[in-house]
Amino acid sequence: MTPSDLRAAFLDELTTIAPDLDAESIGDDDRLRDDLGLDSIDFLNLVSALHERFGLPIPEADYPRLATPAKAVAYLAEMLAL
């Protein structure tokens, strides 16, 4: 899986839990909470979906590493040892 595949997968899950976001207009450095308006429940739903998709545990201590799409893709790549 290439970084761009990972990015697409991440945006896919993000726009599934937040269907009013348009994948085209999401910036890599947009903060999920402050810029894209995810609340704590949206965020948990996203973590849960990523857990299902990639089989990663994603503990709460790692949540700051999912703060933006760019950070999240880097985190997923690292955890998947890509």
């Binding site: 429940i41 857990h51 545990p57």
Partner: peptide, 17 residues
């Protein structure tokens, strides 16, 4: 909450809300 969530998968975690 932190202790409860530490060893649980996301679907079983609890939020302060």
């Amino acid at each position: 909450l932190t202790a409860h969530n530490a060893d649980r998968v996301p679907d079983q975690r609890r939020l302060m809300g």
